[in-house]
Simulated scan of single mutants.
Amino acid sequence: MPLRIATWNINSVRLRLPLVLRFLEEHQPDVLCLQETKCPNDQFPTAAFRKIGYDHVAIHGQKGYHGVATISRRPMSVLETRTFCGIEDCRHLATSVELGSRRIHLHNFYVPAGGDEPDPEVNPKFRHKLDFVQEMHDILPATIADTGSILVGDLNIAPLEADVWSHKQMLKVVSHTPVETEGLEAMRKAGGWVDIMRQHVPPEEKLFTWWSYRSKDWEASNRGRRLDHVWSSPDLSPVLKDMAVLKDARGWDRPSDHVPVITDFDIG
C-alpha cells in the first residue's frame, strides 16, 4: 500500500494557504504535516482542506506563534500533544493514520529555534532548545504489532556536515553548533529512529530544506541548511521508495523560508 507523507514549515498557514493548496493539488500527499502555523485552532482553515479531499485535520495551534497541524486523506485520530520544558507552546502533535490493517504513529514537531547566541548561560532561548531536545528522548517508536512510527518536522538543527553550506563557518552558528548536533543525533540513535532522508541521499552530499529570507539571491548563494527532517522506525526503513525536497517551492510567490519534504513508502 503506497503512503506519501510530506512535512513543511509553512510560516503562517493562513498567509500561505494558496501555496499549501497548490502543493496538495500538485503532489497529492496522503498526509501533510505543517509547522509554524501561527494560528489558533478555531481560525485554522479546515474547510479549505476538506474541500479538496483532506477530510481529516488535527490541529495544535496558538495565536501568532508556533503551532503544528496534520492533514490527511486517510482516516486519522489524535494520540496526544505533549508539553515540553513546562512551557505551554504548541510544538508537538501525535496522530495515528490508518492503512487497512496497519497503522502509522506520526509525530509532528516544531523544535525551538534557539535565538542567536549559542550559549545557554546567557541565552534562555538556547537553553530551552537544548532542554527540549533532551526531553524528546521520551518520544520512541511504537512497539505495538502492525504499527510503524514516523517522526517529522522542523527540528531546527542541521546535524551533519553536509546539512549546511559551510560546516567550518557554521560551527558557532545556532542550528549547527556541536552541542545541538550531537544532542539531536544522540536522541535519534537512542530512540532507534532512522534518518530516512540520509538513507536516500548519501550523508556526504549537500542537502538543504531552508534558505534565509536575508539572502538577496537565495538560489545563487545557496547558503542553505537541512532543518527539516523525516525519521522512521526501523521496520519502515526498508520500504522507503523515494524522498524529495521540493526546492522550487522556495521560489513561489510569498514563500516560506522552508520547503516541503516528500517521502514515499510502500507499506506491506
Rank of each mutant, 00 (worst) to 15 (best):
P120M: 01
S215F: 12
V152K: 00
H60I: 05
T143R: 12
S212N: 06
P141N: 13
W210S: 01
D42I: 11
T143P: 00
E117I: 15
F49I: 01
L34P: 02
V13Q: 02
Q134R: 15
T177D: 12
E117V: 14
A94E: 10
T209A: 10
D119H: 07
G100S: 06
V230Y: 10
L130D: 06
L160H: 13
L160N: 05
D131H: 10
M1K: 14
D30A: 08
Q134M: 06
H92G: 10
Y54R: 08
G191W: 08
P202C: 02
L79W: 11
M76S: 01
Q35D: 03
R91D: 08
I5L: 14
P203T: 09
V57D: 02
R102K: 12
K129R: 06
E161M: 04
I87W: 05
K216G: 00
L140P: 01
Q62P: 03
R22Q: 12
G224F: 02
L155T: 01
I104R: 02
L3M: 05
E80Q: 13
E88A: 15
N11L: 08
D138K: 14
R73I: 06
D266I: 09
E205Y: 08
R16G: 02
V31I: 15
P159G: 00
P29G: 01
E219V: 04
N41K: 14
H200E: 05
S166C: 12
R254M: 06
R22P: 05
I262V: 13
L184W: 11
S149K: 07
D253N: 08
I262M: 14
T147H: 11
D235N: 10
A142C: 13
V133H: 03
R127C: 04
L17N: 07
R250Q: 06
L15G: 02
C90T: 09
I59W: 00
D266V: 11
L34D: 03
S72V: 00
P260E: 10
H137A: 13
R103P: 00
